[in-house]
Simulated assay, not measured.
Amino acid sequence: MAKRDNRGIFIAGLVIACWLALLVYLLGWPVSLQSPLTYLFVLLQTHLYTGLFITAHDAMHGVVAPGRPKLNKAVGTVAAFLFAYNWYPRLLPRHHQHHRHVATAHDPDYYQGTFWPWYFSFLKQYITWWQLLLMAITFNVLKLYFPLENVVLFWMLPAILATFQLFYFGTYLPHRGEHKPENPHKSSTQAKNHLWAFISCYFFGYHYEHHDKPYLPWWQLYKAKI
């Protein structure tokens, strides 16, 4: 019997645990706008928020728990839900539609326009009114127990910034402009720099490589970069 590969589960669990642990710590942390640590923590929590969505994305490709679809879906559902109450069953078909019809009128992630109109079109595809309602309820509950500035800086702001990170590096940069007919994935890619590729968006700047090998989880995507 082949040994199961549990690395995806471990890495997904690590991302979720780090996001949660840092959030709990920061909600009670004494904020000082004069301290560079405040801004460093905002950026770190933003990166972990992005990691939640990347984890849910990997689950959409079945690579968090290969061969265990129920567990894979469960992890993806939890990761998506923690990121501003995204609903995994709603995201799943839209993401596969993006892969099937990349950079066409049938691609929900694509928009023929400049950055800001494209960004707001992207948000409209993925944000629902019930998400906004749940976020508003959670915000009002959290501020009953934690300082308002902590809730804004470490729970709300990183979620917003992470949408920019995901959109800019994972959608806008790789799919903007014209692509040559011989480019079947209509995607560009970052220059090879694994450290920057990880920091910027968990290697998803290597976007041609992701479309070419969607079976690679984010933590192995760098191997596809020539």
Rank of each mutant, 00 (worst) to 15 (best):
M1E: 11
K3I: 12
I9E: 08
I9C: 10
I11H: 04
G13A: 10
G13P: 01
I16P: 00
A17D: 06
W19P: 00
A21E: 03
L22T: 11
L26P: 08
L27Y: 04
W29M: 03
W29I: 04
P30S: 02
V31L: 07
V31I: 10
L33A: 04
L33Y: 11
P36R: 09
L37Y: 10
T38M: 00
Y39L: 08
Y39C: 07
F41L: 14
T46A: 10
H47P: 00
H47W: 15
Y49L: 01
L52G: 00
F53Q: 14
I54G: 02
I54K: 03
T55H: 04
H57V: 00
H57Q: 07
H57D: 01
D58I: 02
A59D: 04
M60D: 00
M60Y: 02
V63S: 12
V64W: 12
A65Q: 11
K70H: 13
K70S: 13
N72P: 05
K73A: 14
K73I: 05
V75R: 06
A80T: 06
A80K: 05
A80D: 04
A80F: 09
F83A: 09
W87Y: 15
P89C: 05
R90I: 12
L91A: 07
P93D: 07
R94N: 10
R94H: 11
H95G: 08
H96T: 06
Q97A: 05
H98K: 06
H99N: 04
R100F: 08
R100H: 12
V102W: 05
H106P: 02
D107L: 11
Q112H: 14
Q112V: 11
F115M: 07
Y119G: 02
Y119S: 02
Y119D: 00
F120V: 08
S121G: 07
K124W: 10
Y126W: 15
Y126H: 15
I127R: 05
W129S: 13
L133C: 10
M135S: 03
I137Q: 01
T138Q: 15
V141P: 03
L142C: 06
L142Q: 04
L142F: 15
L144I: 02
Y145E: 01
F146S: 02
P147C: 07
L148N: 11
V151F: 11
V152P: 13
L153K: 13
L153A: 12
F154E: 05
M156G: 04
A159H: 14
I160R: 08
L161A: 13
L161F: 13
A162H: 06
T163G: 03
Y168Q: 03
G170F: 00
L173D: 06
L173R: 14
L173K: 14
P174H: 01
P174E: 08
G177S: 06
E178I: 09
K180G: 10
K180D: 15
S187M: 03
Q190R: 08
K192R: 14
N193M: 04
L195R: 08
W196Q: 12
A197Y: 06
I199K: 01
F203A: 06
F204W: 12
F204G: 09
G205H: 05
H207M: 08
E209L: 00
D212E: 14
Y215Q: 13
Y215S: 11
W218F: 15
L221T: 03
Y222F: 13
K223I: 05
I226P: 15
